[in-house]
């Protein structure tokens, strides 16, 4: 393993993220827990810093907070809809499904944004991300209604990508 992209600032950033996860999982301020967490985070960050390139920090503007809230609500509505959709299909004795694997291309460039989009698609009605290669998403769709690329994009990704593009516009 080469340690080519090792730098102190990246190391500190990784340490910060790892320690944040430790703190979220313990949620205690006892000195023993904090000291153990710091030592473990230093070791884990040293091992993983060369592979940790998914979540580069972005500049968060105050105006972005509105988009985060908007994304949260879009996501929540899609998640609830997805569950009633699954319930409808599962209870129906005829199992109304017509599965297939479709693909579309995203305009997002940031890796973290792509991951958020992929996870959101997995949790929305009738779609499951199988793979992401470059900017191409491969989706297993439980009820294929169209083969037209534009309509596939409009149906599956548009509501999420619209909001994500606003947040990550300056990083494209």
């Amino acid at each position: 393993m080469s340690r080519k992209n090792f730098s102190i600032s990246r190391y500190l950033y990784t340490f910060f993220i790892v320690f944040l996860i430790w703190y979220a999982f313990t949620t205690s301020l006892q000195p023993a827990e904090i000291i153990t967490g710091i030592i473990l985070s230093l070791v884990v960050a040293y091992i993983t810093v060369v592979n940790f390139d998914c979540c580069d920090p972005i500049l968060i503007m105050p105006s972005h907070i509105i988009y985060f809230i908007q994304y949260f609500f879009v996501f929540l509505v899609a998640l609830v809809k997805a569950n009633f959709d699954v319930a409808r299909r599962v209870i129906n004795p005829k199992l109304p499904i017509n599965p297939g694997i479709v693909s579309f291309e995203t305009k997002l460039k940031n890796n973290f944004a792509k991951m958020v989009l992929a996870n959101s698609i997995t949790l929305t009605p009738g779609t499951l991300t199988i793979d992401v290669i470059g900017n191409k998403f491969y989706i297993h769709w439980i009820d294929v209604t169209t083969k037209n690329k534009d309509e596939i994009y409009k149906e599956i990704a548009e509501p999420f990508e619209k909001v994500l593009l606003k947040i990550y516009r300056s990083h494209n």
Binding site: L79, V80, A82, N83, V86, A87, R89, V90, L95, I97, P99, T122, L123, P125, G126, T127, L128, I130, H140, I142
Partner: peptide, 17 residues
């Protein structure tokens, strides 16, 4: 569900929420 991918669809969404 009849196959693996559809099972994954039903399982992931409903069990997450």
């Amino acid at each position: 569900m009849p196959d693996l991918y559809n099972r994954l669809q039903a399982g992931t969404k409903a069990s997450t929420l």
